[in-house]
């Protein structure tokens, strides 16, 4: 078990379960999960396909509601929160990076990065920050390109800039390099880690790639809907 941080955790999960009614039968995906993530930590959630890691990420981000249990994000239990309140919370506190980039195809790179600002509706479309972030990810000259005009790696870099635009305290990434070749994947990962350090966010990364997970501070491993290991990377013995 990782050491408990002195400050209040930014994410706390208690007795979390999630079942899905597929119409004919009930499938238990998560069977009782408990953990806490301190502010600023980089956590990798690992597990084989079907272990429940994406479901867990979705629940942490308020994209889905748990069957039972509590999810406390920055002091607020989001487990029973209304849909629109969850949307507001995501806009304010959580940045996302998806495996398949998920850019809006009809918006340009810059407009995609600015979308969370516009959705947040605080009236300050921070164009300079968007451009700065796009410069940082090496796309300063592709502001007006549509997703379809960008390569996979470039699209994922736009997604990274979008994830950080509102300076969210938490960043969630679901297999962010899963659709990229190893070289591009490595570049995107390095960018993600660099940006995350620069912005000081808590990073939750879902992956089945141990190499990727090795960059994290801590690895939580799931199997069949249960946590089977929760270790600090610094304490994991070197594996051959």
């Amino acid at each position: 078990m990782p050491p408990s941080p002195s400050a209040a955790p930014i994410i706390a999960v208690q007795g979390l379960t999630r079942s899905i009614n597929s119409g004919t039968h009930l499938v238990s995906i998560l069977k009782g999960i408990d953990f806490e993530i301190p502010r600023g930590q980089f956590v990798a959630i690992m597990g084989a396909s079907g272990s429940g890691k994406s479901t867990l990420l979705g629940l942490l981000a308020g994209l889905d509601t748990p069957t039972t249990g509590a999810i406390i994000i920055d002091g607020t239990d989001i487990a029973r929160m209304a849909e629109d309140d969850l949307a507001l919370l995501r806009g304010q506190k959580i940045g996302f990076v998806f495996q398949s980039y998920q850019l809006i195809p009809t918006l340009t790179a810059e407009e995609n990065v600015l979308l969370p600002v516009e959705l947040a509706g605080d009236g300050r479309a921070d164009v300079s920050r968007a451009r700065e972030l796009l410069e940082l990810v090496g796309l300063g000259d592709r502001l007006d390109h549509y997703p379809v005009q960008l390569s996979g790696g470039e699209q994922q870099r736009v997604a990274l800039a979008r994830a950080f635009i509102l300076k969210p305290p938490i960043l969630m990434a679901d297999e962010p390099t899963g659709n990229l070749d190893s070289k591009t994947g490595q570049q995107v990962l390095e960018l993600l880690i660099t940006l995350n350090r620069r912005e000081g966010a808590t990073l939750v990364l879902v992956t089945h790639d141990r190499q990727l997970a090795s960059h994290a501070d801590r690895i939580i491993t799931l199997r069949d809907g249960l946590i089977v290991a929760d270790e600090l990377v610094s304490e994991i013995p070197e594996r051959v």
Binding site: A61, L63, Q102, L103, I104, L119, R162
Partner: peptide
């Protein structure tokens, strides 16, 4: 559906 789900992930409310 995908675009709508992405926007919701990015903080969009249904009404928006």
């Amino acid at each position: 559906l995908d675009s709508i789900a992405v926007m919701k992930c990015l903080g969009a409310r249904s009404s928006q």
